[in-house]
């Protein structure tokens, strides 16, 4: 592989299990050729259902390779907390962005796209495009 910097992916869910499992699923489906940095940020620090600003900040820092970080969130406080952290300015790495996408399908599209070495705009577009995939 080239040493092009990869976009990092953060998956924020109310549930630690959901975030971790979606991260695992997306990485497995990306083919495993390139190690896309993916970090889950699920639940509260106490292991309950909810959202933790600390876990989100730590996850974003851990996947930041300098090419930007795409953050996907499930709903409610997960989305609002990411937005509030982005508004703060210094809580998330430069180039971190909340990506408007369905959580599971978007995460898979984002990781697969990031694995190609695509930039943050392309990762965001791929994740958002997952909304248009109809099942019926």
């Amino acid at each position: 592989m080239s040493d092009a910097k990869l976009v990092g992916i953060v998956l924020v869910s109310h549930s630690a299990q959901v975030a971790a499992s979606v991260a695992e699923l997306a990485k497995a489906l990306s083919g495993g050729g390139t190690a896309v940095p993916v970090a889950p940020a699920g639940g509260t620090e106490g292991g309950e259902l909810g959202t933790s600003a600390e876990l989100i900040s730590a996850a974003a820092a851990s996947v930041d390779r300098g090419a930007g970080v795409a953050v996907l969130a499930d709903l409610g406080s997960a989305v609002l907390t990411v937005k509030a952290l982005l508004a703060e300015g210094d809580e998330l790495p430069t180039g971190a962005r909340l990506v408007d996408a369905p959580f599971v399908e978007g995460a898979i599209a984002a990781v697969v796209t990031a694995a190609t070495g695509a930039d943050l705009d392309a990762v965001e577009a791929a994740a958002g495009e997952a909304y248009t995939y109809r099942k019926v």
């Binding site: 509260t44 959202t51 600003a53 406080s77 609002l80 907390t81 937005k83």
Partner: peptide, 14 residues
Amino acid sequence: ISTVGGASGPLYGT
């Protein structure tokens, strides 16, 4: 924002 854990955290925090 850091401690509430629900939507009221980012809302009141903001």
